[in-house]
């Protein structure tokens, strides 16, 4: 996996996690990242969108235009059933991957 692919896959997983609590629009996902990571993870905001579009094409999320609480028009995304399954799968494989890697790194 190249650095880009790794990052891309991780980004997808993070977005799925963001949506796991309910539908959000693109900007809200960006703000969620800020809050959740204490602004430690700075993602180029725009790159969210190709990821969202790719995941929508795969059927992991679905989009619908709606109105924000500030009365603005925005496109909301929510998880589909497949998307939820994908999130579970990725979460467990990430946990597995990270535990393997940390074990390796802890080796002398």
């Amino acid at each position: 996996m190249t650095k880009n692919e790794l990052l891309q896959g991780t980004l997808d997983m993070l977005i799925l996690k963001a949506l796991s609590r309910g539908p959000l629009h693109g900007y809200a996902i960006a703000r969620w990242f800020e809050r959740a990571t204490d602004d430690a993870l700075r993602v180029e905001e725009g790159s969210l969108y190709p990821a969202l579009y790719r995941m929508e094409a795969r059927g992991w999320i679905a989009s619908k235009w709606g109105v924000t609480d500030r009365k603005r028009n925005a496109k909301f995304y929510e998880l589909t059933k497949i998307g939820r399954q994908q999130l579970e799968a990725e979460t467990s494989s990430w946990a597995h991957l990270s535990s393997v890697i940390s074990r390796v790194m802890q080796m002398a």
């Binding site: 693109g26 725009g46 969108y49 924000t68 028009n73 496109k75």
Partner: peptide
């Protein structure tokens, strides 16, 4: 046009904040 609308809406929200 739809993509444009969506991205602009994001930008406007960031500007407002």
């Amino acid at each position: 046009r739809e993509i444009d609308k969506e991205l602009r809406s994001h930008l406007e929200m960031r500007i407002q904040d």
